[in-house]
Amino acid sequence: MDAAFLRLESEALERIALLELIACACVTDRYITTGVQDAEVSCETASRHRTSLTDRLPDGIRRVLGDARSPALARDLLGAGALRVFVDADALQRRCELIERQWRDQDLLRAFVERQASIPVIRRFFRTATRATITQLRAELNVAAPTKPRALSRSGMDQLFDAWARLKEIGDLRERYLALHEQCDGRWSLATLFAALDADAGDRHPSSSHQESDHVRHAT
């Protein structure tokens, strides 16, 4: 047996597998006995089982499991080790890794919303995030939309770039910006941090508007 397949030592699962096989074999037995054509069978589940499982079982197994006496043989079949349940560890690992990445993206998205990143910035790093999703998260987190990016003083800009440089080992830009926000003790929103790091000195304009910016230039 391939090492990628891990056996689940569970009599309960083995019993369930046996009952499933018996049910499939009984359906196939009735199908063969009555001579009903496949196109005339209305049970979608039964049709799926015939083509995907029982058709691949040897005739002897189908005859015994399809017999009305087969449920009484469960103890004997299980005791013989005929039913064993395995898990494809490689396939399961790939799926779990994908789920973990999705969870991480969800956590980062919530952190961006909570720290008042603008919608354009969020959409840049989370391309599947819709305006409706962002609005819903803001409501759940009780976070207001960010004001337009603030213009920082020269000393503030120097401190910001120094802090950004110290975080260069963080490969994921999303995590790097969150770390920067933390280092700045949350004095500025993520919208302001993005604009400050990306804008040229002549492009920074202070604003007292409380409307969310329609466009924020993005750091690269």
Rank of each mutant, 00 (worst) to 15 (best):
S207A: 07
Y177Q: 06
W188Y: 08
S189A: 07
T33Y: 00
R176Q: 08
F86Q: 14
T54P: 02
D198S: 10
A165W: 03
R48F: 10
R115A: 02
R84M: 14
V216H: 08
T54E: 01
P71W: 08
L53V: 13
T34F: 01
T51G: 00
A199H: 01
A91E: 14
Q106N: 11
R30A: 03
T28E: 05
I122F: 00
L152D: 00
K168V: 12
R15M: 12
Y31Q: 10
S52R: 09
Y177V: 03
G156L: 14
Q106R: 14
S70I: 02
A117M: 01
F86H: 12
C96D: 13
D172N: 03
L78F: 09
I16D: 14
D107M: 11
S153D: 02
P58S: 07
A201G: 08
H215Y: 09
G156V: 15
F5V: 10
A3F: 14
D59T: 06
T130I: 02
L77T: 05
P71G: 10
I170K: 06
R127F: 04
A132I: 04
G81A: 09
A201Y: 13
L193P: 04
T147C: 06
D67R: 11
H205T: 09
S70K: 11
M1Y: 10
Q37H: 03
D29M: 03
R174V: 05
D200W: 04
A129S: 03
R7H: 13
A12N: 13
R69P: 05
R101H: 07
G186H: 07
R30I: 02
R84A: 15
I61Q: 06
D214V: 08
A12P: 10
F161T: 07
C26Q: 15
A199Y: 00
G81H: 09
L167S: 09
L109W: 02
L53F: 11
P71M: 06
V113C: 01
D38P: 06
R187V: 11
A23C: 05
R62K: 03
T28H: 03
L180F: 03
E14M: 12
L77S: 08
E97K: 10
D76K: 09
Q93V: 07
A23D: 13
A191L: 01
Q211D: 10
A196E: 12
A68Y: 05
I170Y: 03
S42N: 08
I32Q: 12
H49T: 04
S42C: 05
P149T: 02
R84P: 10
A23M: 07
W164F: 13
L98H: 15
A4S: 14
A163C: 15
W103S: 04
Y31S: 05
C43R: 11
Q102E: 10
C24F: 11
A91Y: 06
T135M: 03
R63C: 08
L57F: 15
P206L: 02
V121Y: 00
R69K: 13
E182I: 02
R123V: 01
G186E: 08
Q183K: 08
A179H: 01
T192I: 10
A91T: 12
R30S: 04
